[in-house]
Design a protein around this nucleic acid. Structure first.
Lengths: 178, 178
DNA sequence: GGGATTTATTTCAAGCTTAAAATATATTCG
DNA sequence: CGAATATATTTTAAGCTTGAAATAAATCCC
């Protein structure tokens, strides 16, 4: 039998957070890459660092996942429930994806799905009381994790960044209101 | 037989790009949510919008994926090749993940793995000439997509955002050099 | 009413992702 | 040398993700 009870001293099965990072200064002219490429790489990198922490926290502290949290959050804001299509639109994920996540939540008792009286094709998913309570706990922890992640980044910078990202988002989407 | 040859008029199996978006103003005090939560949601949203476009472009125009591109990019910058561990560290993904992506690239002829003469445990992966050529094409397209995505966002804003994200990244990581 | 079309959802195949377990090869040091 | 330990990698189980195909129910319109 192996003599070490250590949980995992093997290779590194946990780092993550940047993917495209490797693209930094590739295919560009100089060694620094072009402005737009560098911006994209850095944006993705920051998002992944935080996302990774959140995912890990959800897994370790609540044995759940970010997508499940997303679905619960959407349902929490819809007291009368939502059908699959509405959930899919709210979360911007594919329809088939919602199916399996809702199934998980049903199995764990956080969600119920009742047939839509007005449309035989749809069922309406909603949080159970237990699900609502569970979500409240998750949301509190989630907010705390985000706060902790951004704790060293001063509020005035946060304001600036928020505003700049708002501009970016508008330019990425329609640019309506030019 | 169904009379329409249309590729897909069914439900929406493609939207995506924000996930956590649903959390906007949840569990907060007011309707706007706290600053840090809003910042996080917006950051993730922007990253996903671009990421999604890139992924779709890779799929549709080159029948490949972002992770495969990442591995090729890392190998392109290492003329002598890299072993799995180095790749895993460079890309910040798990070791097991690299294994399967490299396998795909080997099967498609873009990568070869030769045994490391100095270490029997390692094999060194490197781009083949065909892989190098293919990557050059992919990188050109990738840069063009990023440029196009950010085209409406003015360069001075890009500079500002780049710098602010640099600060954010530093604060997320060590904060070394305070 | 009833066929054609549209809409809501599920199922499916393929691929990414991780963490943990399993292998296999080095390295250390007694 | 040889056992203990460390390192490199693969395999595996579980879950997310998408897009396409398959159902099934509703709507349109002749």
């Amino acid at each position: 039998m192996p003599p070490d009870p250590a949980p995992s001293r093997d290779a590194d099965g946990m780092r993550r957070g940047a993917s495209i990072v490797a693209v930094e200064n590739v295919s560009g002219s100089g060694s620094a890459g072009s402005l737009d490429l560098r911006l994209w790489v850095r944006l993705l990198g920051c998002a992944r660092i935080i996302e990774k922490q959140l995912r890990r926290n959800f897994q370790e502290q609540f044995d759940t996942t970010l997508p499940r949290f997303d679905v619960m959050a959407a349902l929490d804001r819809a007291p009368d429930g939502l059908n699959m299509g509405a959930l899919s639109r709210a979360l911007l994920v594919s329809n088939g994806n919602v199916t399996s996540i809702v199934r998980q939540l049903q199995e764990q008792g956080s969600v119920v799905a009742r047939p839509d009286p007005g449309d035989g094709r749809s069922a309406i998913a909603a949080l159970t009381p237990a699900g609502k309570a569970h979500f409240a706990e998750l949301a509190r922890a989630h907010h705390q994790w985000v706060r902790a992640a951004l704790a060293e980044f001063p509020p005035d910078r946060q304001e600036q960044l928020l505003s700049l990202l708002g501009e970016l988002r508008r330019s990425l989407l329609g640019e309506e209101g030019e």
